[in-house]
Amino acid sequence: MIRILISNLIRFAVLVFIQVFLLKNIGYYNLATPFLYILFILLLPFETPNFLLFILSFFLGLTVDAFYDTLGINAAACSVLALVRIIFINLTVQRQGLETEPEPKLGIMGFRWFFFYATILTVFHHLTIFFLETFSFSDIKYTLIRIVLSSVFTVFLILLSEFIFFRKKER
């Protein structure tokens, strides 16, 4: 239990650090901006209570917002992300067979499940972020292109990091 807590704390710190100091400066002409930090919410244990999940998501979002000077956008997106995560897990995972491994990781859940999991959650998160950022439907084509490209970028980074830690874990 304590191991989970500590590993999540470290993950939180590392992901926020990477997000605000590295990925904030990476982008493809403002079209594809990765938001890797959502990996923290993705990797929270299955047994996390909903309330705690929302609190953590909100807090994570606020932290990132503080660095991005966009108070509320990431918090809102993370709230959406938490809801989508709960619904997705409720629909696809049987709670009974998960006593051994409590975390939704690539190595445990298999690539296909994890890929859909990451993709759907990322798309919802990015939809919220970009529509709140533009705050209008006037240039919807541009916004949609941004959402798609950024989602591709983020999912790519999530899978990449998962593969890295997956190998480490196997050792």
Binding site: N50, F54, L62, T70, G72, I73, A82
Partner: peptide, 21 residues
């Protein structure tokens, strides 16, 4: 509960968002 939590937190962040940007 997930839905109600969502409503609460999403509303909070929206309020923050509209008030501060």
């Amino acid at each position: 509960n997930a839905f109600f939590f969502f409503i609460i937190f999403f509303t909070c962040s929206l309020i923050l968002f509209v008030k501060n940007n």
